[in-house]
Nucleic acid binder design. Sequence first.
DNA 1: AATGAATGAGCCTTCATTCAT
DNA 2: GATGAATGAAGGCTCATTCAT
Lengths: 235, 235, 235, 235
Amino acid sequence: MIVDNSNGCFKYAFEMGRPSLAKPRLGSAQAKTRQQLIAAAAAVFAEVGFRAATVRAICDRAGANIAAINYHFGDKGKLYLEVLRFTQEEALEKYPTNLGLKADAPPELRLKAFIRSFLFRIFDEGPIAWHGKLMSREMIEPTAALDALVAEKIRPQAQQLSSIIRELLGPSATLRQSRLCGMSVVSQCLFYHHCRPVVSRLFPDQKFTRNDIENLAEHIASFSIAAIKQLAKNQ
Amino acid sequence: MIVDNSNGCFKYAFEMGRPSLAKPRLGSAQAKTRQQLIAAAAAVFAEVGFRAATVRAICDRAGANIAAINYHFGDKGKLYLEVLRFTQEEALEKYPTNLGLKADAPPELRLKAFIRSFLFRIFDEGPIAWHGKLMSREMIEPTAALDALVAEKIRPQAQQLSSIIRELLGPSATLRQSRLCGMSVVSQCLFYHHCRPVVSRLFPDQKFTRNDIENLAEHIASFSIAAIKQLAKNQ
Amino acid sequence: MIVDNSNGCFKYAFEMGRPSLAKPRLGSAQAKTRQQLIAAAAAVFAEVGFRAATVRAICDRAGANIAAINYHFGDKGKLYLEVLRFTQEEALEKYPTNLGLKADAPPELRLKAFIRSFLFRIFDEGPIAWHGKLMSREMIEPTAALDALVAEKIRPQAQQLSSIIRELLGPSATLRQSRLCGMSVVSQCLFYHHCRPVVSRLFPDQKFTRNDIENLAEHIASFSIAAIKQLAKNQ
Amino acid sequence: MIVDNSNGCFKYAFEMGRPSLAKPRLGSAQAKTRQQLIAAAAAVFAEVGFRAATVRAICDRAGANIAAINYHFGDKGKLYLEVLRFTQEEALEKYPTNLGLKADAPPELRLKAFIRSFLFRIFDEGPIAWHGKLMSREMIEPTAALDALVAEKIRPQAQQLSSIIRELLGPSATLRQSRLCGMSVVSQCLFYHHCRPVVSRLFPDQKFTRNDIENLAEHIASFSIAAIKQLAKNQ
DNA sequence: AATGAATGAGCCTTCATTCAT
DNA sequence: GATGAATGAAGGCTCATTCAT
């Protein structure tokens, strides 16, 4: 309710105030607490989701005071956004989409690399895995963070994939076709991650060791390349 | 994990003299309230998730008393299980997996029918769609309901798909191969549903009208059939 | 922050929900708690102001649960509005502005009655006095409640006073003149209440017993009538 | 009651080695920050009141560190006292009560001058106005500062007014009578300031430009002089 | 059988204050 | 001397659940 309409000065408190809410200064004492909060939050958010995660749980895990999130990030929501950005960057740093391949490598190899990198990224353990879980949650209840993420991180990847597929499809392929094929490729990768609970129940022997993932990558790559080349012929 | 590990509502209390906690008596006024609660809960759970759904919102939407959920189902968690069972039955009733095709139709047609049926089911509106959303949530935080669901509903579908694919792959195909191909097919269907928030942001012009879905089915079917036939040759 | 943009159903919870948030049903069990909350809140708000008043303090004083305010009134602000309305009504009921005088009594008598009633109202003790304190606070930090109060309660009183004064001023008086005279009258009454801390320090022998108030009324009435009549002559 | 009884900040801690908690050294960098803090605090306190004012808002506005208030004044409450003293001195310096009139001018003129000076003072803008707002707050929750204020500043003004009125009332007037008349005069001035929220709502066309204030002064003066002279006759 | 007023634990957030640097 | 990161108590509010009726 608006009973308290007399706070024309709160804009000061909210807009200025915290010294480094915008950018962390690396190396400072502040940055350490910030990092610990982000790491703790990533784990907690991944485990129980945004809503169910309590600031208390996060701060406890980070060894910080209950008010630390407010101080460093403004509120729980802004921390969440920060976490999403952070884990995305960690994941892409550890598993770049090209896996070290040259840009002029044959498209088949580059597609395979893309698929392997994608799978390794979402099946990693620890901090990297959190990002996958967070993204899954975003799919169900998108937050404001998703827009930024799509623009900054996901679209570039989509374009990279698209260009590989256009090479495979040949010059006469339509944009729509390459787009659909791109999604067919990505969908196969995501499936094992997203539907893991069902996959595990249907095929209890399916594990996700490094070797299993290599095999999955092999299948997805050959399945997709076969399909794409065939589609290229039929045009 | 069970639905939500953060509040002690899962006491499995088979307690006290609640009248019809076990089975609804159809036709009674009680059964009517029960049905209305399930329908309302399905909508609300699908919209905002288990945790964010409030018993008040559900009861209001159902035109029932605030205490009705505890009275009829014991607690919010048990209502959720009931909802999951209900929506899944509705969905399979409306869109059977074979879409009326004969069992001896050519495998290409049967695969296409399977894909179309799958897509229509997850892109339906209203009660049917709720099931898809609830299942997405199950993927992230599986509840006890999932085991029953996989055994009763999902495995039969998986086997049906597998048999179609084995026909396409030919007699020399391994079980592993047909399983992987099955998942490649299903994954492409699920992707558009599950990753819709990202798809919509990447390609704002992508809609999901009946016609769009037909086009998707066409792409997924031809992509998959092309891949499978090629794999069959390479064996 | 808007992370949680998925709660399209909360409008239900907020807008329906509480059964009798709009009107208390007198005599019901609910009404009793409501009344106790309002009484307790009036005392606490008057003592420490809206902001400093805590819902805990109010509920404790009312012998109610911490959540009672939310349940019965929605939030602290709505309770405040209710309190303001309630005390205003109590005050006007106990001391009606005409103090039982006939409408055709001589204007001098009616002005004196208005003044006495005004003074008695603001110098009453207990629940009636709270209203005066609350109004003083409203003067400093007006809340949304003030608009309603002016429209519903204060303007009618102002008009009543104005009509008395117009009678005293005679037919040739301007609207502006009667308005200014009205404010001169009211201001003298309010002063003793509002500036009591200063008056008490300047003139420690000034008390506010019933007799003192009668004397004040006598002075204010004769001062004002003398002035008004003189102004009437000078026109 | 002291400013605010709801947080234990009034420990009267004459503690530790803070450098200049007792007296500011003029000219030092320290004194500058002190002054900026007082000015900022005056504005913020006047705007939103003691409780709603946050130390962060004040320090931000003063361009000082969040810890500056504790450092320079001990705590928020002591800063408030400092602010009250400061603003009162500013106000009386700018608008002396006699407005430059000779002491032997006719009492009617001197009364009018008193009234005009009073009105200009309370309707001033900026730092001077803050004092009026703070005084209003003092009326509701007097602090220790009020005693000093009454003794040093208000009583002299009251006596000045009283002597003017005694001249108007004539030699046979009682002390009580002149006192009451004095309060009648002052009350009319204060009313427009103190009840401005109600006045503005009742009469939206009432503004408080310099010209409006002159008109108000004219009315209050003639109203009061008419009354006083009449009372003088009736003795 | 069904209601709805009442409960109390718990959540996020705010804020004056402190203390190591 | 001055800073600002960190603190912890406390506030308003929400919500599933209970229980007297």
